[in-house]
Amino acid sequence: MGTTIIVGIIALLIGLVGGFFIARWYMKKYFQDNPPISADMIKQMMAQMGQKPSQKKLNQLMSTMKASQKKK
């Protein structure tokens, strides 16, 4: 009876730790593949700040964001 409880607790702890690291890896991969900010969102933010965004400026900002994500 005692060993069953100990094995159950150890299995639970291993499952929790393993699940945490798998979920962390999956979320990192997801956000690298699908960045949370798109070009349309940047365009809207710039328009709200009173700037008229050109396509060249949008491309520069997007490439800067992608480069900073790869560094992390």
Rank of each mutant, 00 (worst) to 15 (best):
M1H: 13
G2T: 07
G2E: 07
T3N: 11
T3C: 09
T4R: 11
T4S: 13
T4Y: 10
I5A: 12
I6C: 11
G8W: 06
G8C: 03
G8V: 02
G8N: 11
G8K: 07
I9C: 05
I9S: 06
I9Q: 04
I9V: 10
I10G: 01
I10C: 03
A11R: 10
L12D: 05
L12G: 05
L12A: 12
L12Y: 10
L13T: 09
L13S: 07
L13H: 06
I14V: 15
G15A: 09
G15E: 11
G15Y: 13
G15N: 09
V17H: 05
V17F: 07
G19F: 06
F21A: 07
F21R: 10
F21Y: 14
I22P: 02
I22W: 12
A23M: 15
R24K: 14
R24H: 08
W25F: 12
W25Q: 10
W25H: 11
W25C: 06
Y26N: 12
K28S: 11
K28N: 15
K28L: 10
K29I: 08
K29M: 11
Q32W: 09
D33T: 13
D33G: 11
D33L: 13
D33P: 02
N34S: 08
P35Y: 07
P35V: 04
P35I: 03
P36T: 05
P36C: 02
I37W: 03
I37G: 03
I37N: 04
I37S: 05
S38C: 05
A39C: 06
A39P: 01
A39W: 00
A39Q: 10
D40R: 10
D40I: 08
D40F: 06
M41T: 08
M41V: 05
I42N: 00
I42L: 07
I42Q: 01
K43S: 01
K43M: 02
Q44G: 03
Q44C: 04
Q44V: 10
M45T: 11
M45A: 14
M46K: 01
M46G: 01
A47C: 06
A47G: 10
A47T: 14
A47W: 03
Q48N: 11
Q48F: 09
M49C: 12
G50T: 04
G50C: 04
G50P: 02
Q51D: 04
Q51N: 09
Q51Y: 06
K52H: 03
P53A: 00
S54D: 03
S54H: 02
S54K: 00
Q55V: 03
Q55E: 15
K56R: 11
K57T: 01
K57P: 00
L58S: 00
L58Y: 01
N59H: 07
Q60K: 03
Q60H: 03
Q60S: 06
L61I: 05
L61D: 00
L61R: 01
L61N: 01
M62Y: 00
S63P: 03
S63Q: 15
S63R: 15
S63C: 04
S63K: 15
T64A: 14
T64V: 09
M65A: 08
M65S: 04
K66C: 05
K66D: 15
K66Y: 12
K66T: 14
A67H: 14
S68R: 13
S68H: 13
K70Q: 15
K71N: 04
K71V: 02
K71L: 06
K71C: 01
K71I: 04
K71G: 04
K72G: 05
K72V: 10
